[in-house]
Simulated assay, not measured.
Amino acid sequence: MSEWTPRRFYEQATPTETSGGYGIALDGHRVMTPGKSALVVPSRALAEAIAAEWQAQGEKIDPGSMPFTRTANSAIEKVAPQKDAVAQMLADYGDSDLLCYRAAEPDALVRRQADLWDPMLDWAAASLGARLVPVTGIMHAPQDAMALKNLADRVHRMTEFELAAFHDLVAVSGSLILGFAATGPDHDPDDLWSLSRLDECWQEETWGVDEEAQALALHKRAAFLHAHRFFVLSGAD
């Protein structure tokens, strides 16, 4: 039996100004989250992106083709009720950041990690007030407590909509520093994604491309780039 999907029941999807921000109306009726909360976002630009997803639907509504709607729903229903816990969970990535765990060999990989990852650690020290120190191997080595506090304070200042996007920027890349870099104008998000895959790319160069792993990487890249766009739009007004 085929899975049931809702049919399109409206003609026009439009952003609307409402109490607390911007909503989306379907023929004048406001969109609700799956849990029946009002779908209200902080910027018109984000509301326009969500409305565009609804407008682009065909005869049947495909939730899988609506990432902005899905992330906004998560911000309202999943992040907001436990905002401090989500923020701390993401901040904890700083103590085991991908950029800090380096290979002992071969020399070419060691040099590549230093050449590409050290500048990001320098950027974090200058821009975020947090100097993280790289170590060799996979054993955990605690980072400076003040550096971690500075990073955590920044995470906790984010809104629930920023955190919903920041979650994917950090969790998909494995790096709190790359996540922060993706929230500002100084770095191209595609370049940051490539930095997060440095070790995987090395393995591909050495042993060849695994098609299943490559497909997963493309999926994660799309999630990372969407999260970057959602973060930017959430603060666009």
Rank of each mutant, 00 (worst) to 15 (best):
S96Q: 11
R7Y: 08
T136M: 11
P106C: 13
L178F: 05
L233K: 01
G208F: 13
A130D: 07
E200T: 12
D237T: 06
V40S: 10
M66P: 04
A104S: 14
H140M: 06
K36A: 11
I24G: 07
L116N: 09
R44A: 15
G174S: 12
A182V: 06
E200Q: 15
D84Y: 00
V79C: 02
P134D: 07
L233A: 05
D210G: 05
Q88R: 14
L128R: 10
T33G: 01
E3N: 09
G184C: 14
E105G: 14
A145N: 03
E11I: 12
V209Y: 01
R102Y: 11
V155H: 06
S194E: 13
L169N: 12
E53V: 06
H29K: 13
A141E: 10
R7C: 08
E11M: 08
H219Q: 12
M32E: 15
H187I: 00
K149P: 00
D95I: 04
D199W: 00
T18I: 05
W54L: 07
S175G: 12
E105Y: 08
V209N: 01
P189F: 03
L151P: 08
S96C: 10
F230V: 02
P81I: 03
R44L: 15
L198W: 09
K83A: 11
G64V: 04
Y22C: 00
M32W: 04
D122I: 09
A51R: 01
N150C: 09
E105N: 09
A108V: 12
S43H: 02
R157H: 08
T71M: 09
E11T: 15
A85Q: 14
P6T: 05
H219A: 14
D190S: 15
H167C: 10
A125I: 01
R111W: 03
Q55W: 06
H187D: 02
F9E: 10
A49K: 11
G179A: 05
A72C: 04
A130H: 09
P119W: 06
E162W: 01
L151R: 04
A236K: 11
D27W: 05
S2T: 15
D92H: 09
L128K: 04
D153E: 15
D27K: 03
Q82N: 12
Q88Y: 10
D84V: 02
L198N: 10
G64H: 09
D199Q: 13
S37I: 02
R154S: 05
L99P: 02
M66T: 10
G94M: 04
W202L: 03
W4C: 03
V155R: 02
V209S: 07
T183F: 02
H167Q: 13
D84H: 05
L163M: 08
D237R: 02
D144G: 08
H228P: 03
G179Y: 08
